[in-house]
């Protein structure tokens, strides 16, 4: 599904990671590990096409063209939410919720405990609640590849269980996931420690 060969990324005269190669096959869950600043977020951004100045090759089935991009769900470290809009307004204009029925999103928001915050301004919510808004899109989406940067950050234990369960469902459904986390995930089929690729 996704093949990475000899991938290197330099920042400020040093390589964050060098000569990184791996394959992502359907139903695989890869956890990116490494100390702070090891390049986990950078690797996610490179894989989803935000950062371009890398060395090596990234090939997606059918290439990473405009069609291929639609098969990628990206959850960044930042939530890309607008503080002065309500939860529902944010979801309406968020491209990660494209093609998803509003009722489905509302159901997921309720599952994550946000059913009473649909018309609240995002600025009034906690960081964990903001994360849950985007996770409701993640839960309702149906993509081939998920690139998730610290998906469980700021979440309470109950929500972590719900999201972890959804991650498992997506893998069982044939989707592939690459995610960064400092916490050990027992579901991960492969670990990549970026410290080993630093120079």
């Amino acid at each position: 599904m996704l093949t990475i060969q000899g991938l290197s990324y330099a920042y400020s005269d040093r390589f964050l990671f060098k000569n990184l190669s791996f394959d992502l096959v359907p139903g695989e869950l890869i956890q990116l590990k490494g100390r702070n600043g090891s390049g986990k977020t950078t690797l996610i951004k490179v894989l989803c096409g935000i950062l371009k100045n890398y060395e090596g090759s990234i090939s997606l089935v059918n290439n990473l063209d405009s069609e291929g991009r639609n098969e990628i769900f990206y959850l960044g470290h930042k939530n890309a939410l607008k503080d002065n809009l309500t939860v529902l307004e944010n979801l309406k204009y968020d491209y990660r919720s494209d093609g998803i029925e509003l009722t489905r999103l509302k159901e997921n928001l309720a599952t994550l405990g946000l059913e009473n915050y649909l018309f609240s301004k995002v600025s009034d919510l906690s960081e964990g609640q903001k994360r849950k808004i985007i996770l409701s899109c993640f839960m309702a989406s149906n993509k081939s590849i998920y690139l998730l940067d610290e998906p469980l950050i700021n979440l309470d234990e109950e929500s972590k269980k719900i999201v972890s369960s959804e991650i498992e469902n997506k893998i069982n459904g044939g989707s592939s996931i690459i995610f960064t986390s400092h916490e050990k995930n027992i579901l991960a089929t492969k670990d990549i420690n970026l410290d080993e690729y630093a120079t």
Partner: peptide, 17 residues
Amino acid sequence: KEDYDDGSLDLFYVRGF
């Protein structure tokens, strides 16, 4: 600035807008 700080610009690049 706001789109850059909150990660909205990242999303535009991801979707190839």
